[in-house]
Nucleic acid binder design. Structure first.
Lengths: 213, 213
DNA sequence: TCGTCAAGTTAGTGCCTCTAACATATGTTA
DNA sequence: TAACATATGTTAGAGGCACTAACTTGACGA
């Protein structure tokens, strides 16, 4: 589906691009397994994901992944890391063309945050749903921190601060909490709450104003 | 630990309370298994929970649970339902003694919401963390809705409305989103964000004021 | 050309969920 | 009170999964 090959693979020299060798060796099994894992996590849900399924999808034996990943958890971590990088890129892209220091930049980030939760709920849950008993990799915390910094930078500009002060951090934390919770709720229940519908953009504008004034 | 027997068991007539019959029949295995499940879910995390472990803890064979529960998922649902009832009771109890219509009632609910997430993270995650691919029981949605109604009632009073209007629902939704997200973040990272600490009560007061004014 | 090593394979272990068939206690009814 | 029906336990076992060990293939460098 997505052409994310080589994102997480170690560089290899002179890989022959004649991919159809009917090869005993796969070519880039690591990337293929990550693709398969992401697909299955979204299709069946993270809980129902099995390494065996990923192997079947990639067309290899069930022992093959262990040449590339320590265990099942490491496969999931790889998928989440890749997803978080995409998430950050999306948020940064959403900022383009919006004037610096305007609250629209805050809401744009929020919209993108929610969009990721709705478009890739499986990965969103793996990262944020508290898989913490299974997955605890420092790289995941780093990634989350980087996303948070993006928000803080914008909050600082909105508040007219030249650097990230305690107050900026505090406001950012409030905004983050809100959008984070909103993402979970929307993913689980949708925007229609007992027949009444909220407009997401309006909701975010409202909150940004309340939090930043 | 907690004496929650009979909470979820069908009434049985004339249960002999001479529990130590070295009995082939357990007495109240259903309740014992729910207890064991809750304990294990908190100790090891929902992902690592296994029916076999619960059986060992309860001292029965691994086939015994299936006389009381359809499958593993139904065991978890039972634990979550029981936890949600406790959660609602806690929130209602937290309101006692606080004058009607004051925003302190809102923050008291928020504090209790967060407290549950921190005290019973396993159950919190099972309910809200999006186990939705495995667990989807209408009773869970009902329970969540009931909790939300508690909040809405208080929001209406704070806004001086005699019934739950669209605006009440909207404000309640904003508050819920915030506290929900806050719960997740605190459970995952704690209140100390890079050395700076927020006071939870102050944070909630602040947000309530911003959302209700 | 040959040896080495990365990256596949098959076979197998141990744990898990869940089912089938059997065993035992309990309480109802003749 | 005896016998039956039913609820609730048991053991045995099927089938799936994560992961390992030992073997095989083939690509690359000396």
């Amino acid at each position: 589906m997505t052409s994310t090959k080589n994102l997480l693979t170690k560089d290899r020299k002179t890989r022959p691009e004649t991919a159809s060798k009917k090869a005993y060796h796969h070519g880039d099994l690591r990337a293929a397994l990550i693709d398969a894992t992401r697909q299955l996590v979204e299709e069946k849900g993270p809980d129902s994901f099995s390494v065996s399924d990923a192997c079947r999808l990639a067309g290899v034996s069930t022992a093959a992944p262990y040449k590339h990943f320590k265990d099942k958890t490491e496969m999931l971590v790889a998928v989440v890391l890749e997803g978080m990088a995409r998430h950050r890129e999306n948020m940064l892209a959403a900022l383009e063309g919006i004037p610096e220091g305007s609250p629209e930049r805050i809401t744009a980030i929020g919209m993108e945050y929610v969009a990721f939760a709705l478009n890739e709920p499986g990965i969103f849950r793996l990262k944020f749903g508290g898989f913490t008993d299974r997955i605890s990799d420092p790289r995941l915390d780093e990634g989350g921190q980087q996303s948070f910094e993006i928000l803080l930078t914008e909050v600082a500009k909105c508040l007219g601060e030249s650097e990230i002060t305690a107050e900026v951090r505090r406001r950012g934390f409030l905004l983050w909490s809100f959008v984070h919770g909103l993402s979970f709720i929307l993913r689980d229940h949708g925007l229609a709450e007992k027949g009444e519908e909220f407009d997401l953009q309006t909701l975010l504008d409202d909150v940004a104003e309340r939090m930043l004034n």
